[in-house]
Amino acid sequence: MTPSGPFAHLDGERRVIDSSQDSMVRPGQLPPLFQFSQNSLQDYADCRRRFQLRFIEGLRWPAARSEPIEEHEQFVNHGVDFHLLVQRHLLGIPIEKLAPVENPLAEWWDAYLHYPPPDLPTTLRLPEVQLSTPLAGYRLMAKFDLLAIDPGERAVIVDWKTSRKRPPRDQVLNRLQTHVYPYVLAEAGTHLFGRPIAPEQINLIYWFAAAPTDPEILPYSADRHAENRAYLEGLIGEILTIDDEIWPLVEDEFHCRYCEYRSLCDRGVRAGSLDEIDAAEEESDWDFEWDDVEEIAF
């Protein structure tokens, strides 16, 4: 009798994966488990050398990213706490068990309850979802704070931003996140949507705790999708072709003030002030920390 159902492949020829055979780290190349994300691409866009140090060489360099470190740490912790709070809410934990007492969390929570992102689809609310799609021979992944979907009709990506100031629109538009998120959802969200998603059915909303009534709502389109594909493919292609021993350093040294590798690159001594960093970059810094947290949590 031949088994079928979830084990219908049982009668097939066995393949044995000997993972030690094909997954060797080669100096100067991306590691075997690497996948591109908005963070890594943003690092590349900001400074190629930073990308090389962080992702090709995997170099840990424990200098401060911004000063005062104490405030930076609080900023990161509050961001993590807020995301967790919203996740708990979206997973159905009763609201009376969630009320935070300390600011800024209490203020943000109040803002979230009174001024949530507008006009969200209601059928599916999926917090902390990760999707990925192949691009230029690698995987491009996105981890969404929230996907709100009415299957077959529309899908909204929500990203919670806890930077201290709302960044101007042009800064938001230029972030790699704005390119990566809708692109990945359009390519990899079919199973959640019930059928292929047309780019026009996607919106990306940045919701700002510091300005909850003024979210940035970014509609997506087929033209934008094609542009994004070309742009992201180009970036990855560029990364794969660099064979310099030391990748080019960013010209504008302002970035170096908020980069932990500044001493290695002889680009300064003290970390830049948290007050001078722009909101989008501040958030990007935080997002990177969040990825770290995820990794450590395993």
Binding site: I17, Q130, L131, S132, T133, P134, L135, G137, F298
Partner: peptide, 27 residues
């Protein structure tokens, strides 16, 4: 012991993909 699964899932030859959780029970 998760590496073989991650390697398989992160290969580009498989198409668009959601997140398959590969975890320890402690995690």
């Amino acid at each position: 012991l998760a590496y073989p699964y991650w390697e398989a899932l992160r290969g580009a030859d498989y198409g668009p993909l959601g997140s398959v959780d590969v975890r320890t029970v402690n995690g």
